[in-house]
Amino acid sequence: MSAVPNRPSARTAVPPKRTVRQPFDWTGLLFALGLTLVIVVPLLVVGTWAFTEVWRYPSLIPQQFGLRFWSQTLARADVWNALFLSLRLTTVVTVLSAIICLPAAYAFARLSFPGRNLLFLSFLASHAFPKFGLLVAIAGIFLHVGLIATFWGVVLIQLVSTLMLMIWVPVSAFQAVDRRMEEAARDAGAGPLRVFWSITLPQAGPTIFAAMLMTFVNTFYETEGAWLIGAPQIRTMPVLMISFINNQLVVQYGAVLSVMLWVPSLLALIFARRAVGTGAFARGFGA
């Protein structure tokens, strides 16, 4: 043994170098370029407009950059009202949706009851028909019960669009939780509620969190329902942005607002990657 040089770490640390070259991934590059063209370029244009004061055809770059339109936009009370209203609405909708959908999703995942499959499919129904037709019909009903142009009217209509995501994704999350884990917790002395709280929810947590985040972002950007039910009293950020774009000849107001609207989704995405990891989204969709 003494004859063997006692340096195993030195030998294993440096693997023999291989000079095999990976063929260049042209397809990947092509896709990346295509995506950039379709997604990033329009965003860049809008982003540039938001910081532009003078930009006349045919110049490729604005003649004059500046924050004039930002200060003008941020000075408006209706912008701040819309922002806080949007945040309030979105939070209420997301929390309500979680309270309604998570227990329902657990029931779908773990219990069998008559009509289960039909009911499960019915959550697709809100997405199976042209949304605007559905909204108009609901608006008719809301008009009768006095929910038009109220906060809770908009909450209700936005709740409808969150149902599918908040049922379907958590159902697969709950189904992915090993039943034996829950049984082991029962065996250790926990009642059904305690098992749900201590075992099932944390196990399904990342995926459910991802679903809630997506619900939050989707609701924040939801426009048709908010406009149809909420107008004219309830004006959310996207609704305000549309009216800016429609009513003002100055492009910059709309651009500034849309850049402002990127912030929540960007934050959400960064947060999601940190807290959840990409796997949770995929698991939520049954991958």
């Binding site: 090993d178 034996r180 884990m181 049984e183 082991a184 917790a185 029962r186 065996d187 250790a188 002395g189 926990a190 009642g191 075992i199 944390p202 196990q203 947590g205």
Partner: peptide, 20 residues
């Protein structure tokens, strides 16, 4: 009796440890 009120302890094939 439900499992939580029985004086039994079970070890599962899949060990069913709480991974979180």
């Amino acid at each position: 009796l439900p499992p939580e009120r029985r004086p039994t302890g079970m070890v599962f094939q899949s060990h069913a440890l709480w991974t979180h």
